[in-house]
């Protein structure tokens, strides 16, 4: 009990501090409704991808192929969406086509997830290597299919996903919120979730307790793949296009968001609520720096420093706790 809430509280106070700081530095431009809306449109992609990374990290793995998966799924969706089919056959705004495209994209993402799962669970390849291999393979396929070109020009129904609001809330943030709730329920309220945490800490003990480890890992990477596919929906609908190398800089950020949100790099610990706070903190800092006109590359360097700072802090905290325990 203690542990979970104390970490959450620390993050929460950091968040308040960060908001205060950015307000101070940027004044009303930061606190404007417009600014928050623009953040709300940017945050979901990274948020959904971070969840795809997080679930792999919980099992003490990593998924380097999430961005590549999102891009390939996005391209498959885009290829279907740009088919010239008479509009009357596809419903208002091409809704029928959009649904078909999304299903096909998610199917591809799920297939990649299962491939990762198979390599890691059944062939026992280390997650870094397995997902490195699929990353190269999948991004190669994306490149080979598109020959490096942008696929663009979607029906209105698709563009609406990325750019409209419901009750004043951008659709992407609603998709993100739904994704967060679902993942949170999976992790906290299902037996699969409980097994994921335990497996992340000690797969052998899980094996001897009747846990079907390969199945848990398959499910983990399947979910990771599916979340990448959902991120693809948000991504291509916002850009109104798909391309083989969108969002490559997100890979570091997803690790950063997870670690910042309290996901242990060694596996077994971390919650969606922490991840969301980490995500918001990161978004606010990046937005604030952007408003201040800070060079984007300086921001990139800053993320690296924040990542190390967070890990150092965790290390010192753990050492302190252990010292207290041993006395």
């Amino acid at each position: 009990m203690e542990r979970k809430y104390s970490e959450f509280l620390v993050l929460f106070f950091i968040l308040l501090g960060v908001i205060g700081l950015m307000w101070l530095l940027n004044g009303s431009t930061f606190m404007s409704l417009n600014n928050f809306r623009s953040m709300a449109f940017q945050l979901p992609e990274l948020g959904i991808l971070s969840m795809a990374m997080m679930i792999a990290m919980l099992t003490s793995g990593i998924n380097l192929s999430i961005i590549a998966t999102a891009n390939l799924a996005g391209i498959i969706m885009a290829l279907i969406l740009t088919q010239t089919i008479p509009p009357e056959a596809t419903g208002p705004g091409g809704i029928g086509l959009v649904i078909l495209a999304i299903l096909a994209g998610l199917l591809v993402a799920a297939a990649i997830g299962l491939l990762n799962g198979f390599l890691i669970a059944h062939l026992e390849i280390s997650p870094i290597l397995a997902t490195l291999g699929t990353m190269i393979l999948v991004s190669g396929l994306a490149l080979a299919i598109t020959k490096g070109y942008v696929v663009s020009g979607f029906p209105p129904a698709m563009r609406a996903i990325g750019n409209s609001t419901i009750l004043g809330l951008p659709v992407p943030i609603l998709i993100f919120a739904a994704g967060a709730v679902i993942l949170s329920v999976i992790l906290q309220r299902t037996s699969l979730g409980a097994r994921i945490y335990m497996l992340g800490s000690n797969p052998l003990a899980c094996f001897y307790s009747g846990v079907n480890n390969p199945r848990v890992l398959m499910s983990t990477y399947l979910i990771s793949g599916l979340y990448s596919g959902v991120a693809a929906i948000v991504m291509i609908s916002r850009f109104n296009s798909a391309k083989a190398d969108y969002g490559e800089s997100y890979l570091l950020l997803t690790v950063l968001v997870s670690v910042l949100g309290g996901v242990s790099a060694a596996g077994g610990f971390g919650r969606v609520s922490g991840l969301i706070l980490g995500l918001i903190i990161l978004q606010i800092i990046s937005n604030g720096l952007n408003l201040m006109g800070v060079n984007t590359f300086l921001t990139v360097a800053l993320w690296g420093m924040v990542l190390i700072a967070v890990m150092v802090l965790q290390f010192l905290l753990n050492r302190y706790k252990e010292k207290r325990r041993s006395i």
Binding site: T190, S191, M198, N202, Y208
Partner: peptide, 27 residues
């Protein structure tokens, strides 16, 4: 035998997770 760095409660329930679900299949 044990997942040493996880909670006592989580270790005890590891073998019986499926029986601790409600009608909606949630824990």
């Amino acid at each position: 035998g044990l997942v040493m760095n996880q909670a006592v409660g989580k270790n005890i329930t590891l073998t019986i997770l499926d029986s601790l679900r409600n009608s909606a299949k949630l824990l």
